[in-house]
């Protein structure tokens, strides 16, 4: 699948924002600290920036409001509804904290649940597509949810350096997210494709089917959108980069932070978040670029 930058930026940024919103909603940061207000605002900014980025891949973004109507059948519509709905408790709580110095725990819980549901809906857009074997797995939502939570906890740790609870949760989540992502990739590489050129043409009864002549000499929308190919040697290297940046380095930095104190502590945590974000960006790029669409059985 073509790795569209708008989609990659959207899922990574909003994933981080929603993860942070969950930590805030569950009271992971001390409300009385001024930096917590900043964290609330950062979560909203990340989510909003992601959602705006997602509009850039639309052919007619001026009609995007229509996407809220089909929540009964469409995961994309459900995502839109949940994203907008979740803004209400998140913004209210940020406002309360900013103006009264106190947040409402109930709103926090609703916001946290909404944030996770939104990320779940995003992941289900991909999971529900049967024609893309790599995505059509329960591991896809698991990876999205765990990665979002991990990013959120790492980000929250920057606002409360030295909090053992956040550092511990971060380490556990890094481990869980890495395990789910490893399982996801293992499945993708070993999975037999559901459809083949033989089943796509129905000519398998005669023999092996091979494309003799394409319908046209150059690319079309389908081959550009679904026919993205990434060289195997590059994908292996990129996957190694993603593993190190997204999981291993942040885990090492978290461990280091537990041993440190003072100013270097915060910079180590900020570096962990940056490394994790770069790793997840690479992971998300591979998520799209390596997924093979059933339509390519015709090309």
């Amino acid at each position: 699948m073509h790795p569209a930058y708008s989609m990659i930026i959207f899922t990574v940024l909003s994933g981080l924002g929603y993860g942070l919103a969950v930590v805030l909603g569950l009271g992971g940061l001390e409300p009385s600290l001024p930096s917590t207000v900043l964290a609330h605002i950062l979560a909203l900014v990340l989510i909003a920036a992601g959602l705006i980025a997602s509009l850039f891949h639309l052919g007619n973004p001026q009609r995007a409001w229509r996407a809220l109507s089909q929540w009964r059948s469409s995961w994309l519509s459900r995502e839109g509804v949940m994203a907008l709905g979740t803004f209400v408790p998140l913004t209210l709580n940020a406002g309360l904290l900013l103006f009264t110095g106190q947040s409402e725990p109930i709103l926090g819980y609703i916001g946290a649940a909404g944030a996770m549901l939104t990320v779940f809906c995003t992941s289900m857009i991909y999971t529900s597509l049967k024609g893309i074997d790599a995505w059509h797995s329960a591991l896809t939502p698991a990876c999205f949810l765990l990665l979002s939570l991990t990013g959120g906890v790492l980000l929250a740790a920057c606002f409360a350096p030295g909090t053992r609870l956040l550092a511990g949760a971060g380490l556990l989540l890094l481990l869980g997210a890495m395990a789910s992502k490893l399982a996801w990739r293992r499945r993708m590489l070993r999975n037999q494709p559901l459809s083949t050129p033989e089943s796509a043409t129905g000519l398998g009864g005669i023999g092996r089917v091979r494309l003799f002549e394409r319908p046209h000499t150059l690319d079309n929308y389908l081959t550009r959108e679904m026919g993205y190919r990434v060289a195997r040697k590059h994908s292996a290297k990129l996957w190694a980069i993603a593993l190190v940046c997204a999981f291993l380095l942040p885990a090492a930095l978290l461990l280091l932070s537990l041993a440190l104190g003072g100013l270097p502590l915060r910079s180590v945590l900020v570096f962990a978040v940056l490394s994790h974000s770069v790793g997840v960006l690479v992971e998300r790029w591979l998520f799209f670029a390596e997924a093979r669409h059933a339509v390519m059985n015709y090309y």
Binding site: M1, H57, L58, G59, N60, P61, R63, A64, R66, A67, S74, L76, I125, S128, L129, K130, G131, I132, S195, A200, N220, Y221, L222, E225, M226, H293, A294, V295, Y298
Partner: peptide, 17 residues
């Protein structure tokens, strides 16, 4: 239609452009 392209992704046959 907002041109999100999800229907083209969902079609295994490449019927939508």
């Amino acid at each position: 239609c907002i041109g999100c392209g999800l229907c083209a992704w969902s079609c295994a046959y490449g019927a939508r452009e």
